[in-house]
């Protein structure tokens, strides 16, 4: 029987988009059956266009910066865009996969993507905002799979 991995993806920033998609695509490649439940800001990762994901240095003191920068400067207009641009350049230069690429790998290998119905309603998202290959579900549907999983992680 295939091992099972259940993930909850709750964050929608460029940096935090990586852990669920890296682990899910790798687990699927290793023969795991994988479900990811996307809730709150994690729902952003299921949108058709995810090219505008951002990373913010604000409230993120461990983020490596080229020069030390006080919080007050990090909130200036344009800082978030600059940090995002720098991160994307670094990602490309170091041969790290793009989020689009990892999400595609997940879909190709049969990872099931579930959107939290409650959050969809809460934020007034429309089903058409999202890629087609997803299902909608609630907490109970997460447990249906997670209860039989070998590994379950919240991120």
């Amino acid at each position: 029987m295939a091992k099972k991995l259940a993930l909850i993806a709750s964050k929608g920033s460029l940096d935090w988009a990586y852990p669920p998609f890296i682990l899910a695509s790798t687990a699927a490649a290793m023969g795991y059956e994988v479900h990811i439940f996307f809730t709150f800001y994690g729902l952003t990762l299921l949108k058709k266009d995810i090219s505008d994901l951002k990373v913010s240095p604000l409230g993120n003191p461990a983020m490596p910066m080229p020069i030390p920068m006080p919080n007050l400067a990090q909130m200036l207009p344009g800082m978030e865009s600059m940090a995002t641009m720098m991160m994307k350049q670094k990602i490309a230069k170091k041969g790290v996969a793009s989020i689009e690429e990892l999400r595609e790998a997940c879909l190709e290998s049969g990872v099931k993507l579930i959107a939290c119905q409650m959050t969809v309603d809460l934020f007034d998202f429309k089903p058409t905002d999202f890629i087609d290959a997803i299902k909608f579900g609630g907490a109970a549907s997460f447990f249906e799979f997670a209860g039989e999983s070998d590994i379950s992680l919240f991120m």
Binding site: I22, T26, A29, M30
Partner: peptide, 30 residues
């Protein structure tokens, strides 16, 4: 020149259309 987890994903993809007992050569720098 690809970073984690891409070499593994490429490996899995490479193996997928091969027959059992065939050998895949894969190079990585990660």
């Amino acid at each position: 020149n690809l970073n984690c987890p891409l070499p593994i994903l490429r490996c899995k993809k490479g193996l997928s259309d091969m027959l059992g007992n065939q050998t895949l050569k894969i190079m990585a720098t990660d």
